[in-house]
Design a protein around this nucleic acid. Sequence first.
DNA 1: TTCTGTGAACGGATTCACAGCA
DNA 2: TGCTGTGAATCCGTTCACAGAA
Lengths: 226, 226
Amino acid sequence: MINEIPEVVILRLPLYARVLAILDDQGTDVVSSQTLGTMLQATPAQIRKDLSYFGRFGKQGRGYKVSGLLRELRQILGLEKQWSVVLIGVGQLGRAILSYGGFAPQGFHIIAAFDSNPASVGQRVGDLVVRDVKDLETVAGDRQVDIGIVAVPAEACQEVVDLLCQSGVRAILNYAPVQPRTPKGVWVRDIDPVVALQSMTYHLKSLEGRRDTAGGRGRRVAAASS
Amino acid sequence: MINEIPEVVILRLPLYARVLAILDDQGTDVVSSQTLGTMLQATPAQIRKDLSYFGRFGKQGRGYKVSGLLRELRQILGLEKQWSVVLIGVGQLGRAILSYGGFAPQGFHIIAAFDSNPASVGQRVGDLVVRDVKDLETVAGDRQVDIGIVAVPAEACQEVVDLLCQSGVRAILNYAPVQPRTPKGVWVRDIDPVVALQSMTYHLKSLEGRRDTAGGRGRRVAAASS
DNA sequence: TTCTGTGAACGGATTCACAGCA
DNA sequence: TGCTGTGAATCCGTTCACAGAA
């Protein structure tokens, strides 16, 4: 195994983990690449190949043990660890992110929220008090911060990202509609629902007006970051 | 031009349009693939090649006229049209989506919101009254609905997506943490911030503890849908 | 027999490199 | 001279197909 693991493979692992968790909940204990492929809309060969980058998790003639494979993937992805996250930007979007219950159960803990607007600073939001973005480096000096979530307007994005990078953050989930530049070693995923919609309208456009065309076949594309 | 246009190219066009809009606002009137490449963190060759699938928009020795290219891209992507959107699921996430001001200015108009919870049905949210999801087909029969945004729990996702497809919707922006199955001709983009985070932790894990490693160079990956 | 793991073949996307136009 | 447009070359990810383990 001299291989460099392709980034696309890494992007798929969380999806594998997600369906394995569902299977595990259902009490399924063994699953084949075939079945997994059906659930994930992928080929069995792709799943086997992807997993083979990391080890030999299956049993020939049987398949993969659900709980075991799930544990392996969580291990590989670093999901057994608790990650500390800071949020920058406590506008409408930022508040929605803070109140979203989906992060903590997956080990992502938002430990602080920042804004630059003096009107927001000091406000209580959920169980955090909004701090001035100027304090970010101080906070990051006190406690390790692994991940930053950026929910500021486009104009402020690069500045905020620079600050996060200076503060030692190495992963950024960016909701601003621009692609910030980062130094090597800092990872970014962009989430922009408008961009996601805009690439679908390309396909809709061509079927204009028709309601029941069997035309261009729909496809699914991983739409997370850029 | 006998070519089928690669889907990855379509996924990049909205990003091109986004920076061109910024340049246009700034009053820049000509831009080279070089400059565009720097702004988008892409190679100039890729940008030229991508654009060449659709026509010859540049002038040798000069570059691309910003406003002209922007207009072309908006045309190609179908962004000059107004698109009608329905939202399914008016929980916390759904409400945040409704109050998000970023869709309408880009031509995406949320014309109705649905939920299955009787407690929500009839409630006023923004300037919409939440309707019962059972009325979806009726509404879609009255007015053309182009796009569905799904913001329901994982368990309800497939059911809701099936209903949207039956109602003639051909593009779905899915916020539920599962990948729904759709018939050919229906496009899906998945947005799951947790999945986006989980593929970054893979990279963070390996640098564990170190604060200033020049280790694995960070990369940017389009993280929109799947 | 069934299903994994994997080298080899394939196909598609990116990059190169240059001809050609302004 | 500067930069586009584009075939050709390259790179990389996916799929095939089969050997081998249960």
